[in-house]
Design a protein around this nucleic acid. Structure first.
Lengths: 345, 345
DNA sequence: CTGAAAGCGCTTACAG
DNA sequence: CTGAAAGCGCTTACAG
């Protein structure tokens, strides 16, 4: 590999001149610049990333913290990762994947201490996520995708849960649904995504005068079945279910089929954050709601790089609107339910 | 951040002694070692990765080349990535994600030239993949997941297509299927995964005396529908379809339903390389065949690290057996077909 | 068993 | 507009 000294020699200048030509941080005469550029081309020169990082204290590497073992995988996770990675590379940064769970914080402190990364993106953030404190202590700037219970002073990107819930419930209400079910995952502690989204749906339902029962489901087929049974136990008359738990969807569908409930004629089902190709696999294909995961990943990188560029503005919280993708799993509420509803009044 | 000089000062030794204590490359007296370890703990010392990389010419970083825009995403890709990342971290390496397509090779040559990575893992390898030459020219050791048309002298891990095809066809033959359909993706040039797997299925079918018709399908719902129509046009009597194209599965299922073909009573469908949670989404759930993606990612890292440790053995080709996961989408061949078959003789 | 010193390839004040 | 030189924080012969 050619070094900067090689380039300087070939161009007949000093290494510092080569360095300045490369960074553009001081004026270089045209003829000198041209000789340097030619020399770099001739030698196939690429600056050594380690020397640069050692001296400049900037590595142009950002870490993506993804706790791979914290739960089942979903395709949307890959979309976040690729959205972030693509944009980091566009901006001239490398993206390093840290998949150790680092729950104890020990490993993560190690990693952060190496000075390898300029900043970090934190995925799958939980209400009291120990990683946040570790990063703060290590002085590593970071942006969250999602957020901890108390995100004051911290940058994050997230789904606009309020808007998503209003959009979903509004659509279902238009279709005549007045009794809704909501299924989240098992990790529903206060402040978790599941809990926040459930709250948003409750509010949205109240706003349109609909009833809502919510249950948690394990991220398995049986979990979905059990959730369906519990929902129907709570409200046998519910006509639509919103699932914030991709892995419970097969169980929901099968339990419904076992009871002879046709979808969408007897029961509507909507899923949150399920990518199109996955949504097409069910029969009928799933109507879904959610923001673009790759867009969120992209925006998280932008937020982080802004901090790395020295922006000292107050913390930003960037929310992304969910979009409704109509497929076949939602339809008008069944008429019999309408009659039942009306007979109550 | 504490430096090695800080540790040396606190422990009352020279920096070189600290360095040797850390690397273990020369004997250090117990008392000295203890003082050094205590000092490192007290200071929360972590070696600076850049200084280490600059001096030692080893970064302990490997790149994972994943062309994010080369086609639609599948969950198994995330499994490869996480399998590789996890194992790299276990072995003390960092994994850097390179998702630029780098088809022209220019970007990739840039990246490889920075000296940032000790080696690379190449995913989604195509028969004549320009990335391979770029890496070879840059002197970056690498391991492929999949392989180019002529992989002589190159390390790779891959699915054992022959075994997978024999297992799949053997199972279908046991169930009485004698006329099979095969659906691959659009990129079916000679030497591609699709072409190789198709060849393996042809051989396996011939071995058990079954007929096989193969078609390509676009990675869309409509692509799947069109493929179904073409298959049925070629052989209206086929009773089982193997899909090496996850994205075409919804179209296949719907086209079959449109013709009133029940699954699995009238038609069996099997999918290659579809993760369990995705396989559960269809009705009935998909019977699948394939190796563990995370295992392949893990093994690819092992292969690469062995080279980085100086292993000069001949190139290794490591094939992984596919496993059959029986779910609901395959069953015995319909009896009417049996009768039709027999009436021919 | 331990230390002093050179040097990896850059960046960046300092000097002209 | 350009150069000589210090120094980033390590590793590793060289010397004892």
């Amino acid at each position: 590999m050619a070094t900067m000294a090689d380039v300087a020699r070939l161009a007949g200048v000093s290494v510092s001149t080569v360095s300045y030509a490369l960074s553009g941080t001081r004026p270089i005469s045209l003829s000198t610049r041209e000789r340097i550029e030619q020399a770099m081309l001739d030698l196939g020169y690429t600056p050594n990333a380690f020397a640069r990082g050692l001296k400049s204290k900037r590595s142009r590497i950002i870490a993506l913290l993804f706790p791979a073992h914290a739960g089942p995988l979903r395709l949307s996770m890959l979309e976040y990762i690729l959205g972030a990675s693509d944009h980091a590379q566009e901006r001239g940064y490398h993206l390093m994947l840290w998949t150790t769970d680092a729950e104890d914080g020990e490993d993560l402190a190690q990693l952060a201490g190496q000075g390898l990364v300029d900043g970090a993106l934190v995925m799958e953030v939980r209400p009291r996520d120990p990683r946040i404190q570790v990063l703060a202590d290590a002085g590593v700037p970071f942006t969250m995708i999602g957020h901890i219970a108390d995100p004051v002073g911290l940058d994050y990107t997230d789904t606009d849960f309020g808007q998503s819930a209003r959009l979903a419930v509004g659509y279902l209400a238009e279709q005549g649904h007045r009794r809704l079910g909501f299924v989240r995952g098992t990790r529903g502690e206060a402040g978790s995504e599941g809990a926040r989204l459930e709250g948003a749906f409750r509010e949205a339902a109240a706003r349109v005068g609909a009833e809502l029962v919510a249950v948690a489901a394990a991220e398995t087929v049986d979990g979905g079945r059990a959730a369906f049974t519990r929902l129907m136990g709570c409200d046998p008359g519910l006509s639509a279910i919103v699932a914030f738990n991709e892995h419970a969807v097969p169980g929901l569908l099968r339990a419904a089929a076992d009871l002879g409930r046709r979808i969408p004629e007897d029961l509507s089902i909507m899923t949150i954050d399920m990518p199109p190709h996955v949504a097409e696999l069910t029969t009928p294909p799933m109507t879904t709601i959610g923001p673009s995961a790759s867009q969120i990943g992209h925006a998280a990188v932008d937020m982080l790089l802004r901090r790395l560029d020295g922006d000292a503005a107050p913390a930003r919280h960037l929310l992304f609107k969910g979009e409704l993708s109509l497929r076949g799993s939602c339809g008008p509420a069944p008429t019999t339910d309408h009659l039942m509803d009306e007979s109550k009044y």
